[in-house]
């Protein structure tokens, strides 16, 4: 495990459009919980704030809870409720 590095955050659908980018790279000094990443993302991407209570979060392709541990190098995804089918 790398002691420090970056966490990649991917955005999809209306979340991507709200912040105008598909990807952010956040520096982290070690393992963090998802809540910390969420706070950083919402501070940097104020366009997301109107959507924030409906956003879903995933870590390494699995839905994640606020307390999910994230390691440097992990990929987080942030998106609105899904609407396939």
């Amino acid at each position: 495990m790398t002691p420090s590095g970056t966490v990649t955050v991917l955005f999809f659908a209306a979340a991507r459009e709200a912040i105008g980018t598909a990807e952010l790279s956040l520096p982290v000094s070690g393992p963090v919980i998802l809540t910390e990443i969420q706070q950083q993302v919402l501070q940097r991407a104020i366009g997301l704030q109107p959507l924030q209570h409906r956003l879903l979060w995933a870590v390494n392709n699995q839905y994640a809870l606020p307390a999910t541990m994230i390691q440097p190098g992990d990929t987080v995804a942030c998106f609105p409720p899904v609407s396939g089918g």
């Binding site: 459009e17 409906r54 899904v82 609407s83 396939g84």
Partner: peptide, 29 residues
Amino acid sequence: LIDTLKQRVPIWKREHYTDGRVLWQHPAA
């Protein structure tokens, strides 16, 4: 399978209406 796919799988659709409006669909509201 179809019900659970619609709740869970990260796919989104954007609807283009004939009157020119374009809206993301977010059924889980």
